[in-house]
Simulated assay, not measured.
Amino acid sequence: LNYYESTGKKLSKETLFHAVQAFQNGEINFLQYTQLLDNAKSIEVNYLSTLFQYNMTVIEANYLMN
């Protein structure tokens, strides 16, 4: 969670921005573009998965303590 908030979020946004710019300028082909999009989205998906697991752990801990 800390990685995404400190580094991952910025990296994902920059990757998306540069992928779009490079593709529009013809610097990369469609395959490279989709690979960059996949990389950026994978960072976000991993964050959301980790956040879900964290929240489930908190809910279970609260349930067991009450």
Rank of each mutant, 00 (worst) to 15 (best):
N2F: 14
N39Q: 09
N66Q: 13
K9L: 09
A22Y: 01
V20D: 06
K10F: 08
Y4L: 08
Q53V: 13
A40F: 02
H18F: 10
E60N: 05
G8W: 01
T57H: 09
F23D: 00
Y33Q: 04
L16Y: 04
N29K: 04
L31W: 08
V20N: 04
L48Y: 07
S12F: 01
I28A: 02
N46H: 12
Y63T: 08
N55P: 01
K41E: 11
K9G: 07
S42E: 08
S12A: 15
G8M: 02
M56G: 03
T15K: 07
N62Y: 07
Q21T: 15
V58Y: 01
E44D: 11
Y63H: 13
N55Y: 12
L11W: 06
G26A: 02
S12T: 04
Y47Q: 06
Q35D: 14
M65N: 10
D38W: 10
E27R: 05
N29Y: 03
L31A: 13
T15L: 09
N66P: 00
D38R: 10
L16P: 01
N66M: 13
N46V: 12
Q53E: 14
K10C: 11
L48D: 13
T57M: 14
K10H: 11
K13R: 05
N46L: 11
L36I: 03
A22Q: 04
Q21L: 14
E44G: 03
E5K: 09
S49Q: 14
K10T: 15
N25G: 03
Y33N: 00
A19E: 02
N2Y: 09
S12N: 02
D38V: 08
Q21E: 13
F52L: 15
N2G: 10
N2A: 15
I43P: 02
K9P: 05
E60D: 10
H18V: 01
D38I: 09
Y3H: 09
F30H: 05
M65E: 10
A19M: 00
I59L: 04
N2D: 15
K13A: 15
T34R: 03
L1T: 15
A19K: 02
Q35L: 05
S42L: 11
M56Y: 11
A61T: 06
L11G: 00
N55F: 14
S42G: 12
Q32K: 10
L31T: 09
L51F: 12
E14Y: 02
N39W: 06
N62T: 07
L16W: 01
E60W: 06
N66K: 11
L37Y: 02
L36K: 03
F17E: 02
L64P: 03
Q32P: 03
F30A: 08
A61I: 05
A61H: 09
Y47R: 13
I43M: 05
L11M: 06
S49D: 08
S6L: 12
